[in-house]
């Protein structure tokens, strides 16, 4: 067991963990934030995507100890002061989610791109969206939401 401290959505979370505990399980079972979902646990579906120091990662493929001392942002950290993030608002307006299980992963993958808005076009957005799996929407609502949020015609 090792004692580690991660900053999760701006708050320090300290816990004793086994080295083999995944970052995803740490987020769900130690930080008690269940918005990060597990869909395949082998890095393909992207449901567990979070930001680690601002870069998107598959939290099922990292060990929690690898994130010791670093900053993690999960879907719970997107909305500020109760106000939805523009990406979340766009997903709502364009019906970019159905069951909502994959949604946190899509939001966090796009959140990585958010600081580059104005510089990215449809191609970059499609590239990010095609790295995640959704079985409900056929992706049309997700792409429409992302284009709208990024102000891409």
């Amino acid at each position: 067991m090792r004692s580690i401290t991660l900053r999760v959505n701006g708050r320090p979370v300290t816990a004793e963990v086994e080295p083999r505990m995944t970052l995803a399980d740490f987020i769900r079972e130690r930080a008690m934030l269940t918005g990060t979902h597990l869909g395949c646990e082998h890095g393909v579906c992207g449901a567990c995507t979070v930001l680690l120091d601002g870069a998107s990662v598959r939290s099922c493929l990292l060990f929690a100890v690898q994130a010791d001392g670093r900053e993690v942002t999960t879907v719970e950290g997107l909305a500020r002061d109760g106000e939805l993030h523009p990406l979340q608002r766009a997903f709502h307006v364009h019906h970019g989610l159905q069951c909502g299980f994959c949604t946190p992963g899509f939001l966090m993958a796009l959140a990585e791109l958010w600081p580059s808005r104005g510089l990215v076009g449809r191609e970059e957005i499609e590239e990010v969206v095609s790295g995640q799996l959704c079985r409900c929407t056929g992706y049309a609502g997700i792409l429409a939401a992302a284009y709208d949020a990024f102000g891409v015609a």
Binding site: G35, E76, H95, F101
Partner: peptide, 20 residues
């Protein structure tokens, strides 16, 4: 009408079996 379900799902506050 946009969905009422979205409010919780977009914030990561859904209640799936593994979250209970």
């Amino acid at each position: 009408v946009p969905r009422l379900e979205d409010a919780r799902l977009l914030r990561g506050r859904g209640r799936f079996v593994a979250d209970l």
